[in-house]
Design a protein around this nucleic acid. Structure first.
Length: 424
RNA sequence: GGAGAGGUGGCAGAGUGGUUGAAUGCACUGGUCUUGAAAACCAGCAGGCGUGUAAGCGUCUCGGGGGUUCGAAUCCCCCCCUCUCCGCCA
């Protein structure tokens, strides 16, 4: 959500930033609507002032036993005009809010301008993809051969884009998630949270999934939604709160299943478990002081990268361009892990700085120690990591010629010391 | 799911239609006092919006939304949440 007062004062800057995203200029329209709204509001408030004064006098007169009919008549006569103005004001302001809430966040200065995915910029390349002296299999072949993955059985239960994991593969997935949580809580200061995965409209509005992206979500029959990411649950933890300045930063993490309808992805990534309706993810969320969000963004990205480093997986860090960045983000780093089965890098994490965009929507503020009033916090979120995709990465990068999978050192403590997953 | 009780400022807790955005206490902030601290005393202490260069002024908000009234924290309706008892249940 954008600050209409800021738009009023910086219309050119606002439109220029929208243009970078490929969106049309909107400031003139918004400013006009805002001016209309304020004119009506001011007029209404003048009438309210008169009404309040008169009502007080009526009270005084009555308490003295005096006659107040003239005043009562006057206020009575104000009512029609007031009601009309009230309705008018309500419409104007909800129209304005609807418009504003559909406008994406403005990209930061250092977000590269580009039309789409192809124009994202690689800023780091870490690790070396493994070389195999045999033909590398993908996780589907590996998993089915190990009796660890079944799409067929998942299909019986739930249809396409679901998977059943079994045995040591299932355990490996759990090991990954535990490892991720342990690193983030013990080494990066994130507090573990076990949040609801069913949430109300307001929560999804707060983080920006609603009202625009309802099609990407699953909704229950009693009006709750399945979260597409724990970003929703974790960020909304501070919704409608006024925090103390020294509460910041708040760093929270959670392992949750995530649910996505993948409405716009028909035919895309249909093989394997790369793109599922349900997957597990360890999410990081930081709520921080506006002065610190840039460095917090780097820190968070580093925390996510640490997981890949310790798993000794090759990856690259991309800065998303203005055409690929998400609705709520000012700047986003994607981490892409090397997948031998696909012979390419694929997204495994996305770390975004949303500035005060989400905070405004959910009214998450803090009280600055110096100065008065309140200020909006900055919110950041990042995956650390998508567990399902990380499982793919481990299976494909750690495969052996015979189809077995070597368990990465750091995961062995979580696997009761097991070093190898093999068939039979 | 059924029956009942209740939701007031950071917390506790008054307030049933009339100068109440809200008594009082605690907490917090500033000041006086003190060698320092405590205590005591004095003062301040909600958020949003509008208007104004500003000081300020105005307006809205007592779980949320409607309604009655000249006037609602107080009366009426709907919804949400919490607690107690019962039922069901991992």
């Amino acid at each position: 959500m954008h600050d209409i007062r800021w738009i009023r004062e910086n219309p050119a800057e606002f439109d220029a930033a929208l243009a970078k995203r490929g969106d049309e200029a909107m400031s003139a329209d918004l400013i006009q609507r805002d001016a209309d709204r304020r004119a009506v509001q001011t007029e209404l408030q003048e009438l309210q002032t008169r009404r309040n004064d008169a009502s007080k006098q009526i009270g005084i007169a009555k308490s003295k036993g005096e006659d107040a009919d003239t005043l009562i008549k006057e206020v009575s006569d104000l009512k029609d005009r007031m009601q009309a103005l009230e309705e008018n004001e309500k419409n104007l302001s909800s129209n304005l809010t609807d418009l504003l809430s559909g406008i994406p966040n403005l990209p930061s200065e250092d977000t590269p301008v580009g039309a789409g995915e192809e124009e994202n910029v690689e800023i780091r390349l870490e690790g070396v993809p493994p070389e195999f002296d045999f033909e590398a299999k993908d996780h589907v072949d590996l998993g089915e051969n190990l009796s660890g993955i079944s799409f067929e059985r998942a299909g019986k239960l739930s249809g396409s884009r679901f998977v059943v994991l079994q045995g040591q593969v299932a355990r490996l997935e759990r090991a990954l998630a535990s490892f991720m949580l342990d690193v983030q809580t013990e080494e990066f200061g994130y507090t573990e949270i076990a949040p609801p995965v069913l949430v109300k409209d307001e929560a999804l509005y707060g983080t920006g999934q609603l009202p625009k992206f309802a099609d990407d979500l699953f909704k229950t029959t009693d009006d709750l939604w399945l979260i597409p990411t724990a970003e929703v649950s974790l960020t909304n933890l501070v919704a409608n709160e006024i925090l103390a300045e020294d509460d910041l930063p708040i760093r929270v993490t959670a392992l949750t299943p995530c649910f996505r309808s993948e409405a716009g992805a028909a035919g895309k990534d249909t093989r394997g478990m790369l793109r599922q309706h349900q997957f597990n993810k360890v999410e990081l969320v930081s709520i921080c002081h506006p002065d610190n969000s840039l460095e917090e963004h780097e820190r968070m990205t580093g925390a996510a990268e640490e997981i890949l480093k310790r798993l000794d997986l090759a990856y690259r860090v991309m800065v998303l361009c203005t055409g690929d960045i998400g609705f709520s983000a000012r700047k986003t780093y994607d981490l892409e892990v090397w997948l031998p089965g696909q012979d390419t890098y694929r997204e495994i994490s996305s770390c975004s700085n949303c500035g005060d965009f989400q905070a405004r929507r959910m009214k998450a503020r803090f009280r600055p120690e110096a100065g008065k009033g309140t200020e909006f916090v900055h919110t950041l979120n990042g995956s650390s990591l998508a567990v399902g995709r990380c499982l793919i990465a481990v299976m494909e990068n750690y495969q052996n010629k015979d189809g077995s999978i070597t368990i990465p050192e750091v995961l062995r403590p979580y696997m009761n010391g097991l070093e190898l997953i093999s068939a039979g």
